[in-house]
Deep mutational scan, measured.
Amino acid sequence: VFVDDHLLEKVLELNAKGEKRLIKTWSRRSTIVPEMVGHTIAVYNGKQHVPVYITENMVGHKLGEFAP
């Protein structure tokens, strides 16, 4: 499973602090992992960042699938 390192670091850091804030990313190719559930990730679609709230059903899919 591929997840960009910088994105995973941000998610794990927020989980350690117990925070839930918006994470901006250009990494549409990253796979959604269970650690991301409950976070809102702003995924770049080529024009703007689209906020995507991550749920359990999204695990295993790519971030780009949810930012048309």
Rank of each mutant, 00 (worst) to 15 (best):
H49P: 03
E35S: 10
S27V: 07
N45S: 06
L8R: 05
E35M: 11
G38M: 08
A16G: 07
P34Q: 11
E9V: 08
A67L: 06
L14C: 05
H49E: 03
E65L: 11
L14T: 02
E13I: 07
L12G: 04
P34W: 11
K24Y: 15
I23V: 11
P34M: 15
K17Q: 09
H39F: 08
S30M: 03
D5I: 15
R21I: 12
K17R: 12
E13H: 08
Y53R: 11
K24V: 14
T25D: 01
V59A: 09
E13Q: 12
E19F: 06
S30N: 03
V3N: 02
V59G: 06
E35P: 14
K24P: 07
E19W: 06
K20T: 07
D5N: 15
V1A: 15
V37A: 08
E35A: 15
L63F: 07
I32L: 06
H61Y: 11
R21P: 07
N45H: 06
R28D: 04
L14F: 06
N45E: 08
G64H: 07
K10W: 09
L8C: 05
F66I: 08
V52N: 07
I54R: 00
V37Q: 10
V43C: 06
R28L: 05
G18Q: 08
P51A: 11
H61G: 09
E9G: 11
V33D: 03
V43H: 01
G38K: 10
R29P: 09
I41K: 01
L12M: 11
S27F: 04
L63N: 03
M36R: 00
K20M: 06
G18R: 05
R28S: 07
L63I: 06
G60N: 14
T55K: 13
V37S: 10
G46K: 09
E35F: 08
V52K: 06
L14H: 04
I41F: 07
T31L: 05
A42I: 02
M36K: 00
V3F: 04
A42P: 01
F2C: 12
K24A: 08
V33G: 03
N15I: 04
L7D: 01
G60P: 02
V11P: 00
T55E: 14
V37C: 11
R21G: 15
H49C: 05
P34L: 11
T55P: 02
I23Q: 01
H61F: 15
H6Q: 14
